[in-house]
Design a protein around this nucleic acid. Sequence first.
DNA 1: AATAAAGTTTAGGCAAACCTAAAAAATATA
DNA 2: TATATTTTTTAGGTTTGCCTAAACTTTATT
Lengths: 216, 216
Amino acid sequence: MTLSEENYLKSIYSLQREHGKGVSTNVLSKYLGAKPASATEMIKKLDEKGLVRYQPYQGVLLNESGEISALKIIRKHRLWETFLAQKLDFSWDEIHDVAEQLEHIKSDKLIHELDRFLGYPKHDPHGDPIPDEHGHVVKMEKKRVSQLQPGDTGTCIGVNDTSSSFLQFLEQQNIILGSVIQIINFQDFDKSMTVRIEDRELILSQIATENIYVRI
Amino acid sequence: MTLSEENYLKSIYSLQREHGKGVSTNVLSKYLGAKPASATEMIKKLDEKGLVRYQPYQGVLLNESGEISALKIIRKHRLWETFLAQKLDFSWDEIHDVAEQLEHIKSDKLIHELDRFLGYPKHDPHGDPIPDEHGHVVKMEKKRVSQLQPGDTGTCIGVNDTSSSFLQFLEQQNIILGSVIQIINFQDFDKSMTVRIEDRELILSQIATENIYVRI
DNA sequence: AATAAAGTTTAGGCAAACCTAAAAAATATA
DNA sequence: TATATTTTTTAGGTTTGCCTAAACTTTATT
């Protein structure tokens, strides 16, 4: 499988999860920073290879072998992220770009030994679960902060947006994995929330609350 | 720099070291498993970029910026080899192919942190020196076993051929880094050598003696 | 229902790296 | 030195993954 094919599979997997239905070429291409025409082309190729199901104008869906492939790449990505954070002291926002490259290295032994070296971690530094060798993932009951009510409390277990500007923001605010977040109140006019984290209160915008995941 | 450009630079560096003069397109292409025409093309491109000096029919030579680039790739390769051997328990012959992929990952921070994590190693698992951040290497006084005389003794510090068949052979014979090799005698008809390693004697073919490096 | 807007696909190109086959240059041999 | 051999280059293709522009579908609006 080529680097580009791997990136498409991974993107289709994420978008399918996020929106719950077939992924349009428009959405897919935007996500990957390419043009819709390019996405159409690649999707056709993946369909011929039996990795996705595709009908013109109807969007793409991964089929079983495509999903397993996607999960194997995601497994590699998350193990490398764990390595970078745990062993090489990378900060939250520096991890992503490098893991994006490392996930394409081809070697079963490498990933198996890396897993052992890291002590068989269950979650990556963003709180996302690491699939096993066969592509199985434990689905977590996670909610966005935006879905909580005033009075609710949750433990930060991950983020949706992994852009470095967002991750830097979290670092500045000292919001890390495991931070306990309590909702104080909710502003209707701009959908922002006042929350308590550790011993201080701050206001999170709608965009922020939609991009932070918590376990309740 | 593309992956292919990096591989050409690295190859030119090695061949230049080995033969001491300009590298012909023929030799270069054979080394890389490509056709001579492809080498000609790439060399022209590298020349235009100012990384090598090239005149048709005269072979290629790295110029300064090309050599620095090559050494940076070699630094990455050797640091990754060290990581694989030291931390992930890869055996000598399994290392090369994976390091060949890892050396192309682009991130200054990554390689800097990896170096720190490994404790700033001076040599890779094959005994080759690891260039510093600026591309400086300590040149070692090393000889091939084939250059020794009966009675001479050397300490194994590396190999030339890194094919897995050769490395597997060494593993079978229990020849490792640090093994002390003493020359017992030399057969003129086939240029093989009888050597003592630890407490046992064995016969090494000419090909084997030419591919094992020792420090005296 | 007709038209406008948005989304998707097709057609034709481009760059990078490779290839083969033929031409050209350099080197070796008679 | 002339010829044969080897090496190198040139010319013209191929594949992958991207692009733009135009054509075509689908969906939304009037």
